[in-house]
């Protein structure tokens, strides 16, 4: 609702009830500007904020003070899990003569193949390998989606017309209203000092 500067894309809408404020968005024109802005926002102590750029900007993660993700560590253990399951599955079905209850009673079925020992680990390695890859790959995608709160059907920023240029030629810093340091007037003034030509309050409709 509140626009700092008139915008031909943004058709002013008269709302009957005041909408919840999602955050404040500041627009920048170069990668250098947004890198400097990110440093300043990080230094100011904001925690719930993000940068949006049309291409990966080198050094931006560092400027934002983002820590490395723990995803690779989790994937490593997912891979280990896959390897273990691959081994146990084959050891049980091919070489085990015990029965276990997995919804129904299932028994191992020791079976000699071409004179090889029952525990023929070389023959099992391809399956162990494939299960390692399968578990790692699926968990990479799955954990990544989970960590990013995806999939989601909508996002307040996506209904902002101005924000569309984040995929073209503009860079945005968005500070969210849920940030403990967020104070509409102060945050707006702060973003203005960073050299943004356009600052706008984004609402959660």
């Amino acid at each position: 609702m509140t626009t700092m500067t008139p915008d031909r894309h943004d058709h002013a809408q008269v709302m009957s009830a005041p909408a919840r404020v999602y955050g404040i968005m500041a627009e920048f024109e170069t990668a250098e500007q947004i890198t400097n802005a990110a440093k300043a926002v990080n230094a100011a102590g904001y925690r719930f904020w993000d940068c949006h750029a049309p291409f990966p900007v080198h050094g931006l993660d560092k400027a934002m003070g983002i820590k490395r993700t723990i995803l690779p560590v989790l994937v490593f253990f997912a891979g280990l899990t896959g390897a273990t399951i691959g081994f146990v599955l084959q050891a049980f079905t091919n070489a085990g003569s015990v029965s276990i209850w997995a919804l129904v009673w299932v028994s191992g079925y020791p079976f000699l193949i071409s004179g090889k020992p029952l525990m023929s680990v070389p023959a099992w390695i391809p399956i162990i390998f494939e299960l390692t890859i399968l578990f790692s790959a699926l968990s990479t995608v799955g954990i990544m989606l989970f960590m990013n709160n995806l999939p989601r059907l909508s996002h307040p920023l996506l209904s902002n017309n101005r924000f569309r240029r984040a995929t073209d030629d503009r860079f945005f810093v968005v500070i969210e209203a849920r940030d403990p340091k967020f104070l509409r007037s102060k945050t707006e003034a702060f973003l203005k000092t960073l050299g943004s030509r356009h600052i706008e309050v984004v609402e959660d409709r």
Partner: peptide, 8 residues
């Protein structure tokens, strides 16, 4: 677009 050198 100018690129910032992260190291010299």
């Amino acid at each position: 677009m100018s690129v910032t050198l992260t190291h010299a």
